[in-house]
């Protein structure tokens, strides 16, 4: 949609009649209109980033007042040598790979289903959108209780069907604890991927498939050789958005496990929050925040490159 901005120079239409001074006035008004939003974003987003940069070079612990001082790169050094940080980074990486992969596959299936015309289509679309709209923390609470050993559904179903796994304390296993975490994350986020893919699917003209059919391609072949390549841009956008938010997962972990058992479900966002807001070690927390910001901006950079390559984007 944004593409249309560039295709026709609408903003210049009045030029011929009104002359240069009118154009300049419109331009000035234009800047004035954009400015408040930019200032607001700079204040709430850019300023904290700079603040982190400065703070990360200082020793600043709330419970030790009067001892703040410049320490150079020492916070970063402590971070690099902390095995817990690397462990949390690893957990985060594993979580990103598994959750994004599963959500992508499920989202693709969802999109393909909803793209077909059938009776209950409206119901499906609405029912998948509700989980998306539920706050992440609430989704985590809901799935935590779903896996509760007493009042949860999972235990009930497994026992009723005499399946193995009944009486499992999911949150006491460093591996199994990830199951509810990932299911909750999927429940909440798959719809988003599905919507993006669906919008992509709807731009593919039906005729392509018909001619493929005439050529004798099976629907499976058509999916691989036509749908997937044509969807490539939508897929990339969806994957990057999800990768970023999965990398920063916090609410789900905080609510479901608090990083436990042990530290087996601790992720980098939790690590950062804990250092900043519980240990109240502001200098160290700022250093972690800087590292996380760099990781996120790397992803953003990839994203912008992909957009650039796409035809029609505002340039």
């Amino acid at each position: 949609m944004a593409a249309k901005l560039a295709t026709r120079p609408r903003d210049q239409l009045p030029r011929s009649r009104r002359g240069a001074s009118y154009l300049a006035r419109r331009r000035r008004v234009g800047y004035l209109l954009v400015l408040p939003a930019l200032i607001a974003l700079a204040l709430v987003a850019i300023y904290p980033l700079l603040y982190n940069l400065v703070l990360s070079s200082r020793f600043d612990v709330a419970t030790e007042p009067g001892t703040q001082h410049f320490v150079g790169m020492q916070n970063y050094h402590s971070l690099v040598v902390d095995p817990a940080f690397w462990g949390d980074l690893l957990h985060t990486g594993i979580f990103v790979v598994i959750s994004v992969t599963l959500e992508f596959v499920a989202g693709m299936i969802l999109a393909l289903v909803v793209n077909r015309k059938f009776r209950a289509r409206g119901l499906v679309r609405a029912s998948i959108l509700i989980p998306w709209a539920i706050p992440t923390a609430v989704s985590a609470l809901l799935w935590k209780m779903f896996f509760d050993i007493r009042s949860g559904f999972v235990d009930f179903a497994l026992s009723a069907l005499h399946l193995p796994g009944a009486q499992t304390v999911w949150f006491n296993s460093p591996v199994l604890a990830w199951v509810p975490i990932i299911l909750s994350d999927m429940w909440k986020n798959t719809p988003f991927i599905a919507l993006l893919l669906l919008a992509g699917l709807q731009t593919i003209p039906q005729e392509i498939y018909e001619s493929a059919k005439i050529d004798g391609a099976s629907s499976w072949q058509a999916f691989w050789s036509l749908t997937l390549p044509l969807l490539r841009p939508a897929i990339l956008v969806a994957l990057i958005f999800r990768t970023l938010s999965a990398m920063l997962v916090f609410d789900t972990i905080f609510v479901m496990t608090g990083g436990g058992p042990g530290q087996s479900t601790e992720v980098i966002a939790y690590y950062n929050w804990y250092k900043y807001m519980v240990s109240l070690n502001f200098g160290y927390g700022a250093a972690v925040a800087v590292v996380i910001t760099i990781l996120a901006l790397l992803l953003a950079g990839i994203y912008v490159r992909i957009l650039r390559q796409r035809e029609g984007f505002v340039t």
């Binding site: 419970t63 006491n172 296993s173 460093p174 436990g260 058992p261 042990g262 087996s264 240990s279």
Partner: peptide
């Protein structure tokens, strides 16, 4: 000790890691 909250966080991790069979 003023360090108690931080000490406790480590003990909590140790207990949890034991109960869950990791260590």
């Amino acid at each position: 000790t003023p360090l108690y909250p931080r000490i406790s966080a480590r003990i909590q991790e140790a207990l949890s890691a034991t109960y869950s069979g990791q260590l």
